[in-house]
């Protein structure tokens, strides 16, 4: 690591019971400092109850130019949704 530190991605849990959601990035010399910066930057108005910081270099992301090939196969499979199925009139709890 250089003396300038590195980029960290910051995830905020808005309240107990929900997942951490990506809020943004901070530049910091260490993970501990990134936590402090994340707190100062993203939770000044009680936006969260828990923070995760992850070195940005550790995030493996899908390529946006490959997105169609990656996600399109799901587009023509509407049988994965309940509304695909014709239910008789008056049926309940299904």
């Amino acid at each position: 690591m250089t003396s300038d530190g590195q980029l960290f991605e910051v995830f905020v849990r808005a309240r107990r019971g929900v997942s951490h959601v990506h809020a943004g990035s901070v530049h910091a010399a260490s993970a501990e400092m990134a936590l402090q910066y994340g707190r100062d930057l993203f939770t000044r108005r009680l936006e969260g109850v828990s923070l995760w910081v992850v070195p940005a270099a550790a995030v493996v992301a899908s390529q946006s130019d490959g997105a169609p090939a990656l996600f399109e196969p799901a587009a023509d499979k509407d049988y994965r949704y309940p509304a695909h199925y014709q239910m008789p009139d008056g049926i309940e709890h299904i």
Partner: peptide, 21 residues
């Protein structure tokens, strides 16, 4: 566990309906 169950329940509805149909 609770959050995994939310995802699962969302997907389970089609399972029941395809069986009924």
């Amino acid at each position: 566990y609770a959050r995994a169950m939310v995802r699962i329940c969302k997907e389970e509805s089609f399972h029941q309906r395809q069986g009924f149909e």
